[in-house]
């Protein structure tokens, strides 16, 4: 868009000079940002590796040795990239996190019945598999959660497929491989692919085409702990579901407390696309699907 205009620059002379000082080509930056024009803020954001905005970068410019000894260790290229994406998300998305609780008793007892067959097949069916299935069903009922905003904010792109991004914690940083076509897969397939993606993510063997383009993402911290958190939406998706540790909680059943296996869920969503009531309904529906798995068949 800008490249066709050789000699007509994407930035004013002072901004070009600033970019030059930092070794940035404004015309390339314009292409990268898909903008006609590059502003001072764009250049500074690029300089800061997409992380801290210019005005506050001073906060990080501190001589730490004056307070005690320490050591500088490099951030991996990978972590720097993730940082840029996370910052972009925080800067551009007015995100809200909605918290809810899901009763996992029925899922847990069903899951136990699959243990023998799982051993035979060499596949372990985790609760995560059911979360994915429930999520695909919930997306069908709430299509705005399976959407992206178009640039300019005048149109919403509704996706007619259901790919779930799986946030995986790896030694080199956070990765989000995508489980494609999750709505068309059976329990065993999902279970198998899930462990395959997780394993290959650890080994950095995820192919580029296995990343990006998800409908929504899930971040599962259940294996570690915690009772709630605010995951950051992975743009251009509009929502992310966070799962915390599933544990027994006393639940009032009308006459007394009974122990129930409870999974806390935290749904962060882009408030430009989804409003609060919709998010609450989405979570309630999601909870119903899992507390009575027969509903997944509906």
């Amino acid at each position: 868009m800008v490249k066709e205009l050789t000699g007509i620059s994407a930035a004013t002379p002072s901004i070009r000079a600033l970019a030059r000082k930092h070794g940035i080509d404004v015309d390339e930056l314009a292409l990268e940002l898909e903008q006609d024009r590059v502003s001072e803020a764009d250049v500074l954001r690029k300089v800061n590796g997409g992380s801290a905005p210019s005005s506050s970068s001073g906060y990080w410019d501190v001589d730490h040795t004056q307070y005690g000894s320490g050591e500088a260790v490099p951030m991996s290229r990978f972590a720097q990239l993730a940082a840029a994406n996370l910052t972009a998300s925080q800067q551009h998305i007015p995100a809200v996190t909605h918290h809810d609780k899901v009763c996992m008793d029925a899922i847990e007892s069903f899951r136990k019945t699959l243990a023998d067959e799982g051993t035979k097949r060499g596949i372990k069916v985790t609760a995560m598999v059911f979360h994915i299935i429930a999520l695909t069903k919930a997306l069908q009922k709430f299509p705005t959660f399976n959407a992206s905003l178009k640039p300019g904010g005048k149109e919403l792109w509704l996706k007619q497929y259901c790919d779930i991004g799986i946030a995986v914690d790896t030694p080199h940083g956070l990765m989000v491989p995508v489980l494609r076509g999750a709505d068309r897969k059976r329990i065993w397939d999902i279970a198998e692919q899930l462990s395959d993606l997780a394993k290959r993510a650890q080994d950095r063997k995820i192919k580029p085409e296995e990343m990006g383009g998800a409908s929504i993402s899930i971040s599962n911290l259940g294996g570690i702990g915690g009772c709630a958190f605010s995951p950051i939406v992975n743009p251009p998706e509009v929502a992310i579901l966070g799962l915390s540790r599933t544990a027994y909680e006393p639940v009032w059943n009308g006459t007394g407390f009974s122990p129930r296996l409870i999974c806390p869920i935290s749904l962060s969503y882009d408030h430009r696309v989804i409003n609060g009531a919709e998010a609450a309904r989405f979570c309630a529906h999601y909870a119903t699907l899992l507390s009575d798995p027969r509903r997944l068949l509906l």
């Binding site: 050789t6 620059s9 070009r16 030059r20 000082k21 070794g23």
Partner: peptide, 9 residues
């Protein structure tokens, strides 16, 4: 310094 003659205008 880093300085460039970068205009056709």
């Amino acid at each position: 310094h880093k300085s460039v003659f970068d205009t056709d205008i």
